[in-house]
Every structure is written in structure tokens, then in C-alpha cells.
Design a protein around this nucleic acid. Structure first.
Lengths: 276, 276
DNA sequence: CGTAAGATTGATGCATATCAATCCCAGTGG
DNA sequence: CCACTGGGATTGATATGCATCAATCTTACG
């Protein structure tokens, strides 16, 4: 019933049509299709959805390839199944601003809903496998299926909250605190994917990290070196080992006084003063 | 049915209580309920919705009152009908971070959908009149009404894009560029509400503006004074007059080289060097 | 092996935070 | 009606965190 009620779905055909429209060399991986269950599990949605008949196509991208570009007509959301990407915006003077580093379980493309065109572009940093979710399919699915609709609202809301956190961090935290938080966040995400949370490889450049955090690449590099010298981490090029997670997480640093509305609350984290 | 299903409102009493304070001889608490059409028009949604029977309650808040607080169970969205507010987040060290200055036509509370609790708090800066939208009503409405659902997705997506813009601005622009952009944005919003876009009164403190822009109140104050000295605006306490909108809008300033991916593209805006 | 892109590290300067002293204005009570 | 009061705004002096400029160093790769 879910599928039948929307004639445009019939996944195979619509997806095939879509991939043609994208123009770029979308490598058709003769491989997988995922059920709605799989997708929900990937997104961290617990709700149970009824039918299983609906299948979503997988697709592979190699490093450097774009899932979508700015201004391209919006029709598709993507759920990352494996690999690492970056989502960027180009500001009015042509500079690149990194907005997110999507990885397994992340939803990509929400920004395209409003205005019917993507407002960002998402680039694969490594080989990636993503699941294609035609937006029309999702919305008709949600209409018939309150749980799915609610879950989708939830995912969008979650993304909104994440961005609010970024605004707060970039606006109020020191460079050290931002980098520390970034590392902690990466650790959490790797853990959530089942990888080591203490030993991992960054897939992005210092420049991309800097753009994401509102810092220059030199500051990122220096801060990582300072953390290393202070014994918080071991860093060697892209390879990171977390040695003192607690200190990383409690690292606040000087500007805890931008908008003192509440108690300053003594800093208990490592402060790195002597390290530099 | 839709209205009755949410018992927490019991609005008549609370609204009466609120409006009772107005000592003015001016009978203007007139409209206490709005139709779906009204709400859509307010939100800038063009889609047409079917039934008219559904009415949404209005409610008044006086300066300093909170529409919702952090951690409070989520059940309600708000659409601003008049007045000015601020939405804030409290970071881990208890500092206040301003995330938005909602005014007429803005939707409040989206961040509560995920997690079933509000993640921000919204405070009235002036007397406000808001329309209450029980979330359950909205979602069941959307289910029956594809246009409404699509419009709501659109509003959430729009909000996401707005926040991406803030991240980019805070991360990459100079203080002057941020303040200039803030003024231009305020001007646009006042214009959209039918007020003068060149002469208006700010309703928030310098501290709140600073928090919103990731700056200190002193920097905001100094920058406004510099704009005044440069002839771009006239500022006197909270009163602002825009004298050179074009320059305000094209003001980029020094850090146009944070992430030079594209052509530096010569700056054509006023640069204010001599002004300081 | 040579080249280019990325990373590290140093030296320096500037934009903005911080500290501090008035100033202005809206309430409020004598 | 007017001094008093307190929050907000302005302005100045100074400190500093981070950007900028620049020189290696490392790694990946054709």
C-alpha cells in the first residue's frame, strides 16, 4: 500500500532515471539495496516501520567525487553507509566553508528541501557507499506512516541542534577548546561506528578542519602539536591517538567569560599554559 | 478534535491573565485565534490548505517572560505575530549564547522535536503576541495535507540554511562584516514587516548582539560607532538609521583570505580604514 | 626520483578581548 | 519635581590569541 499509492516510487525506475540526470560519472555499484529497516537503523531511528518491500539503492563514490553540487535541483537525500565526506558551502567571496564531515549513519541533503535546490555541496573524502533516498519517496512514505514522518522530523531537528552547537562553539570557545571538542567528537563517532575511539586516522586536511572550526590550518596544526606536547594525544600527520580523553573533554580554556551569566565555575581541565 | 486533543493549553485563562495588565484605553487584544491560512501567510508559505475550521490560539507575553525553557517537555511550536524575542542556549559553563532574534513570522521551538524537550529557551524582549501550534496538531495536519507537510519541511530546511549561514559568518567574517550584515538583516526584516528599513530601534542589548555575532559588547559598540563616524549609519543608543545601505551590504573587510579556494575578487565595499 | 600537496614550526602583527572609567537614560521613591 | 540608582552604552588603554607571512619537512604518487 505504501508503495502502490505513489506511482513515482517504483524504486528501480526512478532511481535509474535520477542517476542519469546527475550527469556526473555515478558509478553504478551493481551491489546492494537496503530496506527501510536498514536505513532507519543506520540513522539511529528506533521506530518500527511496516512494510519491507521498499528498497533503496546503494551507490559508490570515489574520493573527490561529488554527491551533489550547489544549485543543482534537489530530489534526493543520501544516507552514508561507509566512507568519509565533507559538506561545504561557498560564501559570497568564493571561499569554501566546511559545514560537516558526514560519515556512517549521517543524512545528507536536507538543506535542499527549501528552495528545491541544494545549498551545499558534498564531496567524498574517501571511497564512500551511500544509500539514495528519493525525497518524494520519503515524503509519501512519511505521509502514510506516522512513525517515519516523526523520525524524519526528529532527524532534521537533531541536525538543527547540532548546528546550534557549532554556532555556540565557534562563537564562544578558544581555538584549543574547539580543537579538543573536535577530537572528542571524532572519537565518539568512531566509537559509535564500532571502530577504536582512541586510535583513528583523520580523513580531512588541516585546512578543512580549520574551516570547519573557524580557524586557520596553522592554528589547528599548532594546537594539535601542543596537545601532543602536553600528553593529551599523539599526533603524526593524519593519525591520532587519544591519550587523555578526560582532559580533552573538560578543556575549556580562557574565554570562559564571554557572557558570564552564571558562575565562572573553576576550570578543572588541563590548561596547557606551560605546554606552549 | 484537533484542538480538543491538547489539554495543556487552557488558554483562555492564561491569555486573559496576560492581557489584563494592559492599562491602555485601546482595545487591541482583539484577535485571539488565527486560522491555518493566517498562520501560513505569516510564515511566508504560499501553499493553500483546505479546511478553515481549525483555529490556533494567540497568547501574550510581556518583556522578560519565557515562552519555554530548556529541558521543558516539548509539545508546542510558536509563530510570532508581533513583538521581539531572543532564543538562547546555555553552554556547558553556564554562559548564554543567543541563537536568534525571532520576530513577526518566525517559527519558534523546532529544536524541541528531537528529544521531546526544548534545547533552547525563548524570552520576550518586548511585549509579544504569539500563535500556539501544538505539534501533534501540526503533524496530524501534515499527514492529511501534503502541502502543509511540505511547507513544514521547507520551514525547517530554511532554518537549517539560516544557521549554516551564521556558522559561515561567525567563522569567516571580521567583526565589522558581521555587524554590517546584522544591520542589513535587521533592515530587511523590518522592511518585510512593513516598517521602515532605514530607521528602526533595536530591541536587544549590545551584549545580546555580541553573543549572537560571537563578539563582545564593546566590539559591537565600537563597530557601530565606527560605522557612524564613517557615515554609514546614525546610531544613538538603540536607535539606528541606515544611511548607506549599499556599503553596508558590500562590506567584506580584511579576512577575505581565510580559505582562498577561488579568486580573491577585489573588495569594492567601504573599508573603514581611515574611520578608526 | 622528482614533484606537489600537505604538515609543521617560527617570527611578527593585528584584530579583538579585557579591564576600567565615565556617560546616558529609565525608573523609582522621597 | 527632582535626586537617586542601576543597567546599559560609550570610550580609552592595554593585553593577547590567533592570523599572517614564510621557511622547511614529510608523504604520496606518477
Amino acid at each position: 500500500m505504501l508503495i502502490a499509492e505513489n506511482p513515482t516510487i517504483s524504486a528501480a525506475s526512478s532511481v535509474t532515471a535520477q542517476s542519469g540526470a546527475a550527469g556526473s560519472s555515478w558509478q553504478r555499484q551493481a551491489k546492494l539495496w537496503s530496506s527501510l529497516q536498514d536505513v532507519c537503523a543506520l540513522l539511529g531511528i528506533h521506530e518500527r516501520a511496516g512494510s519491507d518491500e521498499l528498497q533503496f539503492q546503494h551507490m559508490q563514490f570515489k574520493a573527490g567525487q561529488r554527491l551533489h553540487t550547489i544549485g543543482q535541483p534537489f530530489d534526493m537525500l543520501f544516507v552514508v553507509n561507509s566512507g568519509f565526506l565533507k559538506s561545504v558551502m561557498i560564501d559570497e567571496s568564493g571561499n569554501e566553508q566546511v559545514l560537516a564531515f558526514p560519515m556512517k549513519g549521517d543524512l545528507i541533503g536536507i538543506d535542499g528541501i527549501h528552495g528545491k535546490h541544494y545549498n551545499t555541496e558534498t564531496v567524498a573524502l574517501t571511497t564512500c557507499e551511500v544509500i539514495l533516498i528519493p525525497f518524494k519517496v520519503l515524503s509519501s512514505l512519511g505521509r502514510a506512516n506516522p512513525e517515519v514522518e516523526a523520525a524524519f522530523f526528529g532527524v532534521m531537528s537533531r541536525e538543527l541542534i547540532r548546528e546550534q552547537g557549532m554556532i555556540s562553539a565557534i562563537g564562544a570557545l578558544s581555538a584549543e577548546a574547539r580543537v579538543a571538542r573536535f577530537l572528542a567528537s571524532m572519537s565518539d563517532r568512531f566509537s559509535a561506528m564500532g571502530y577504536s575511539g582512541t586510535q583513528f586516522n583523520l580523513r580531512m586536511t588541516r585546512q578543512e578542519i580549520g574551516s570547519y572550526l573557524g580557524l586557520t590550518l596553522e592554528t589547528v596544526s599548532r594546537t594539535l602539536s601542543a596537545f601532543h606536547a602536553a600528553g593529551l594525544i599523539t599526533v603524526e600527520q593524519r593519525s591520532i591517538e587519544i591519550r587523555d580523553m578526560k582532559s580533552l573533554r573538560t578543556l575549556r580554556r580562557l574565554p570562559p567569560s564571554r557572557n558570564k551569566q552564571a558562575v565562572p565555575k573553576a576550570v578543572d581541565g588541563v590548561v596547557l599554559e606551560a605546554a606552549a
